[in-house]
Design a protein around this nucleic acid. Structure first.
Length: 580
RNA sequence: GCGCUCGUAGCUCAAUGGAUAGAGCAUUUGACUACGGAUCAAAAGGUUAGGGGUUCGAGUCCCUUCGAGCGCGCCA
């Protein structure tokens, strides 16, 4: 495998010995950062000055004297300001690095030093309930993380923890019985899941007789009654068929094989209780079996319990979540559990993880991480609502995105064949929605705005897709085989070429950084910067009009940019059409 | 009441403890019969909510006040 490092990483490795020689000890970080005054800067001298009892500039000067092995990597290195080292990369070095990336299927992205078995728990819609924007965030962020983690070589297991169990299923099954199976199937296959749920709920609230039947049905379901189980499976099946339609429209990789609903852990629930009991972690509180993880208090300042068995004897979601941890670690052998779940559940998950650690189920190096995200807001900065005041259905939102993108494509590029138009509209519309969701720090709430996300200007999917399509158009005009450009060593001359080269070479680092923080927005920001660097290059550096050698070099840069853009968008789950 | 998260330009958002806090919208000005104008350049716009502290250096770390959102025993 060809390993190509980010020039900043190479530089840091080259500078470290010089810093260590000056410091007289190992383990010095040169603190290499991007710079707006040079290609890079090393700030390590400032931190070292106090330790050595010298001024930062003296230290920087000393490092400079030691740093002779930088020839071939840098063309200039100088001390500036209060002790910064400003570094300019050698153009030939950058060209060689680009050639390595061009020859690499992975575009220079290295695989993880330690491959882990990662569970990504995401999407998690509820059976017989509509998918809404909350599921959008979990699904889109989770899907991007899956793609990123797989790309760097982890064993990734997708788990869709659907809500397919619990007391509501009594009323849902009784409602299904009332309607008749065929009628209910029609109802649900139309995607009117909320209607079905609401009708059941209304009957439950209005009729004592229905309420009684629903309760009896829950008991029958939990005791494994055959006919009840069959009806339950029918409900689950109708719902998952509907989910699959949404996933397909959305272009995420979840399938029925990834479903691990709450019901899947039923058999492990009593064992959770038993094991906690044996460990002496259980306490009895108001008739319930609970665990008190330290550090949590309720309104009255009393210790807050995690309830693992209700006063009535039933289990709840905490029990199921613990069974789930056990399953993932003991059966699957996972060492990283990612929960792509909304921020409001932070305390619950934190308590579950703490209890799992207390019980010894979740030990180093295995870890569980809550990949939390904020809410989707309307322009009023309140939870997004449709005009009628309801939570918008996810499918309708996606369909509107595709329709709006279709209008834009029809307007901007009327010559496209109808069939292509529909395909491209879907890529643009879905891409826009996903990118809007992924491009801001996930922990914050974000404002949903059709016009902004579908704009061809600014940090949006259509802008990035356009940058990519524009490059593809250059190749059509040039009539070159893109693959033939991949053995070319680009010649870096102009400042815009160099800026683009540095952007391309930074792909490896940004992928690693994105994964380390579980923050897809870092990759988004990078791709936007790449597109910006490309347009500056494209503006200043003629490609097709240039002389042969320069033309080939610039075409190679174009090819690399397009490949990084397409791969980067692909890691986010976003398509990059060649025309739009 | 306690806890968690957030607070950055008019708006929407960036910014591994590093120099002068960056983009995009919107605003103003300019370039060019255009290698896809779905373009580019420039200007203007900031007490990083307030106050203290740590540090050579703080939007970033700590404390505190204010504001917003969310959570806090048998729903998931």
């Amino acid at each position: 495998m060809i390993h190509v490092a980010d020039p900043l990483v190479t530089l840091a490795a080259c500078l470290a010995p010089a810093f260590e020689a000056v410091a007289g000890r190992a383990g010095i970080d040169p603190v290499v950062r991007p710079s707006d005054r040079a290609d890079a800067q090393a700030n390590g001298a400032l931190a070292l000055a106090k330790e050595l009892g010298k001024s930062p500039r003296e230290v920087a000067d000393a490092v400079l004297v030691q740093a002779k092995q930088l020839t071939g990597v840098c063309s200039s290195i100088e001390v500036a300001g209060s002790g910064f080292l400003n570094i300019v990369f050698d153009n030939a070095f950058l060209g060689d690095e680009l050639a390595k990336v061009a020859a690499d299927e992975r575009l220079g992205v290295s695989t993880a030093s330690r491959s882990r078995t990662v569970i990504v728990d995401y999407s998690a819609p509820n059976v017989a309930k509509e998918m809404h924007v909350g599921h959008l965030r979990s699904t889109v962020i989770g899907d991007a993380l899956v793609r990123l983690l797989e790309f760097v070589g982890h064993r990734v297991i997708r788990e869709n923890h659907i809500g397919d169990w619990g007391t509501p299923f009594g009323m849902l099954i009784e409602h299904l019985v009332d309607l008749g199976e065929d009628e209910a199937a029609d109802h649900l296959s139309l995607g009117d899941l909320d209607g079905f749920y609401k009708e059941a709920r209304a009957k439950f609230d209005a009729s004592d007789e229905f309420k009684e039947r629903a309760r009896a049905r829950v008991v029958a379901l939990q005791s494994g009654d055959g006919e009840t189980r069959r009806l339950w499976r029918l409900l689950v099946q109708l719902s998952t068929e509907y989910f699959n339609l949404v996933y397909s429209l959305l272009g995420v990789r979840l399938t029925d094989d990834d479903i691990m609903g709450e019901s899947a852990y039923n058999d492990g629930l009593s064992s959770v209780l038993e094991r906690l009991g044996k460990l002496g972690l259980l306490a009895e509180s108001d008739g319930a079996e609970v665990v008190f993880p330290p550090g949590y208090t309720n309104r009255d300042g009393d210790p807050l319990p995690l309830i693992v068995q209700k006063g009535q004897g039933g289990f709840n979601y905490a029990t199921s979540d613990l069974a789930c941890v056990i399953d993932r670690i003991e059966r699957i052998g996972a060492d990283l559990l990612l929960y792509v779940v909304g921020a409001p559940q932070a305390q619950h998950l934190s308590m579950v993880f703490d209890v799992a650690r207390m019980a010894g189920w979740l030990n180093e190096p295995a870890e569980a991480v809550h990949v939390a995200f904020g809410s989707v807001l309307g322009s009023d900065r309140k939870m997004l609502k449709s005009r009628s005041g309801e939570t918008p259905k996810l499918v309708e939102l996606l369909e509107e995105a595709v329709a709006r993108a279709g209008d834009a494509v029809a307007e901007k590029n009327p010559e496209l064949p109808e069939g292509d138009k529909a395909v491209i509209a879907r890529m643009l519309g879905i891409g826009a929605v996903k990118y809007a969701d992924l491009s801001t720090d996930r922990i914050r709430d974000y404002v949903f705005d059709w016009e902004r996300m579908l704009s061809f200007d600014g940090n949006t999917a259509p802008y990035l897709q356009y940058a990519h399509a524009r490059i593809c158009s250059i190749f059509r005009r040039a009539g070159v085989d893109r693959a033939s450009l991949r053995s070319v060593t680009p010649t870096i001359v102009e400042a815009q070429e160099k800026a683009l080269a540095l952007a391309v070479l930074g792909f490896d680092s940004v992928v690693a950084d994105t994964i380390e923080k579980y923050s897809p927005h870092r990759l988004c920001t990078y791709l936007y910067d790449l597109a910006t660097a490309f347009t500056a290059f494209y503006e200043h550096c003629p490609v097709l009009k240039a002389d042969d050698a320069v033309r080939e070099s610039r075409l190679a840069l174009c090819d690399l940019t397009a490949r990084v853009m397409e791969r980067g968008l692909g890691l986010l789950g976003i398509d990059a059409p060649e025309q739009m």
